[in-house]
């Protein structure tokens, strides 16, 4: 079987330079061109300046800032848009405080219990301040009620 490499090699061998070109190349002067050391050093220094990694100068780090800002913004927008954690705030302490009737479930009965406490005036403790506004009032009942009816994962639609 003939490989592509073999074919290229045969092709290369078939190439022949014209006789005039071969002769002209042979007649070129063979002595080395003198380049002063100063010119050599100047070219070398210029090359070093051109090829020096920018990270060492400190400018490279700043070039990453737009990328970092863009990436952070993308993550924030993604979190806001997709809202993965909005429906699943599971703070055990808060959950325990909200479960007023201690039945292990946050439902309308907890809101009802708080409403009854507020109505008879027995609930003025900080532990009944569900929404964290510094007061225990009807707003805390509404807060519990809203949590009780919240659709955790949304409907089937």
């Amino acid at each position: 079987m003939q490989l592509p490499g073999d074919k290229c090699k045969e092709h290369d061998e078939a190439l022949r330079a014209p006789e005039r070109l071969v002769g002209a190349l042979k007649r070129l002067p063979r002595e080395r061109v003198f380049v002063p050391r100063t010119v050599d050093d100047a070219v070398l220094a210029a090359a070093r300046r051109q090829l020096r990694p920018e990270a060492k100068s400190g400018r490279g780090w700043w070039r990453l800032v737009p990328w970092a800002v863009g990436g952070a913004a993308a993550v924030i927008i993604g979190l806001i848009t997709l809202q993965p954690g909005r429906d699943t705030p599971h703070d055990p302490v808060a959950a325990r405080l909200e479960d007023l009737n201690n039945d292990g479930v946050l439902d309308v009965l907890d809101a009802f219990a708080l409403a009854r406490e507020i109505e008879v005036g027995v609930s003025r403790s900080d532990s009944r301040d569900m929404n964290g506004d510094g007061r225990t009032d009807r707003a805390d009942v509404e807060f519990l009620l809203a949590k009780a009816v919240r659709l955790e994962k949304g409907g089937r639609s």
């Binding site: 009620l145 009816v149 659709l151």
Partner: peptide
């Protein structure tokens, strides 16, 4: 606009 609701 969905097909499920919890009422209390």
């Amino acid at each position: 606009q969905r097909d499920r609701v919890v009422l209390a």
